[in-house]
Design a protein around this nucleic acid. Structure first.
Lengths: 247, 247
DNA sequence: TCGCTGTATACTGTAGGCAGTCGACGACAA
DNA sequence: TTGTCGTCGACTGCCTACAGTATACAGCGA
């Protein structure tokens, strides 16, 4: 049977359709989480998601497990899946780990830098700067992720790179509002970082990356201290409001 | 229907039966991988595993995905699961990441040390030393894992702790032979580490842990340089030898 | 009015089965 | 002999269905 294009009904974002259904579902749900259509703590009923996306429960189950593996949802056996509700403490710890991983990545990238790698860094950096100047926050955030991922890749340690990417993806979830504030300053730091990498100066690259990520971390915490957190991350399990989309 | 105790036929290790079937299956397969009953690169047919463990394919599928999330098996869509075959390079990178994570853990543990935490460390350390003196390698390795896990836990950063544990579990896979060599020296380092943590000396704790893990890493690499690696990690997909157990 | 118990409901966990697809092997042609 | 095509087998991906279980609500008794 030809697959029915993941029924783009309602809030379900359309997707380019990767290899398997479970991957499509994975990305669809992740998109819903990142966009905020599914709020933290919300219960995700398999059958509901399945119906909404036009597939059976099986690929939904598998997608939820993939999401659980990356920390996006919590799986309580016998109770189902819940959108992960990160506490301030956890976010802080996550950002600390990110600093650790990316700092080491920067150091290694400086140690192993190639002209080609540096050129790629500069290209992404230019794109990011352009986005900031055009006030295009979304593109700027995307470029930021790309740049950091590239640095980890250039570290030459694939295990480190994958771990860092995974952590960074989660960080990105609550990163957008911060990016809005910092804009230019952040990209100026990026430029200095690339200079250090190009010069092969491990110590400086390390130092810049540490300050950079720590700066982001502080910004996040301050911002969150003002806006005193989400609407109580308690396990919501209402008698289904008949629609998943908003909440 | 009452579950039939995961048919302990053949090489399948018996298990205490956790909450769900997929977790049981997860642990059973993991055990088989760690013990070497399933060799790196080997193709894992779902139906075969299912039959062997006395369950249907569904929980096997889900267990395989969990294993894939932790890097134990590779999932090639449309082709199934293969026992992950780590190259020397990957193992080296993994050990490097482990050094990074555990070094930071040690520093934080020293910063946040409590008398209770230190007491727990000493207890595990004593057990490890006893095991080494009794020439009980398996217990020594287990105690070693436990000790390192405890250090990360005492760091106070749960994200870091989980990440480190995950990495360490994978390291442990090829750790046993190394442990055999180092024995005493390793536990002497542990003792000094605990002293540093107790004293709250972050720099020293960090330093000791770095040297300790780097030492392990070098030992592993030397050892693997001698015994020139596994029997060619190529995707084996033979016409099923009618039994999974050995190879 | 408050607490407990029984019942109904909805959801998860698991089983079994079907269809599509990938790879291997053998036959045929150059 | 070598390269190509067709057939066969096996396995994965997905779907449907059933059983078990936890939760919520209503009714009952104190």
């Amino acid at each position: 049977m030809v697959r029915s294009e993941l029924a783009n009904s309602g809030a379900a974002p359309k997707i380019p359709r990767p290899a398997t259904l479970r991957e499509s579902v994975f990305e669809a749900i992740l998109e819903l989480i990142i966009r905020g259509s599914l709020s933290p703590g919300q219960h995700l009923a398999e059958s509901e998601l399945a119906e909404m996306l036009g597939v059976s429960r099986q690929p939904v189950r598998e997608a939820l497990q993939m999401l659980s593996g990356e920390g996006w949802v919590d799986l309580r056996p016998g109770h189902g899946a819940f959108v992960h509700a990160p506490t301030v403490e956890e976010a802080d710890q996550l950002l600390a780990v990110r600093t650790l991983l990316e700092t080491e990545s920067a150091r290694l990238a400086a140690a192993n830098a190639t002209p080609d790698g540096v050129a790629r860094l500069r290209e992404v950096c230019a794109r990011g700067l352009a986005a900031v100047q055009a006030d295009d926050v979304e593109s700027a955030v995307a470029a930021n992720s790309e740049l950091h991922a590239l640095v980890t890749e250039l570290s030459g340690n694939r295990v480190l790179s994958e771990l860092a990417s995974q952590v960074s993806r989660r960080v990105r979830w609550y990163h957008t509002p911060v990016a809005r504030q910092r804009g230019h300053a952040s990209w100026e730091e990026h430029t200095r970082l690339i200079d250090a990498i190009e010069a092969g100066d491990q110590g400086r690259a390390e130092q810049i990356m540490r300050e950079h990520t720590e700066h982001t971390r502080r910004s996040y915490l301050e911002q969150r201290a003002e806006a005193p957190a989400e609407p109580a991350p308690m396990p919501q399990r209402r008698r289904r409001p008949r629609s998943l989309s908003a909440s």
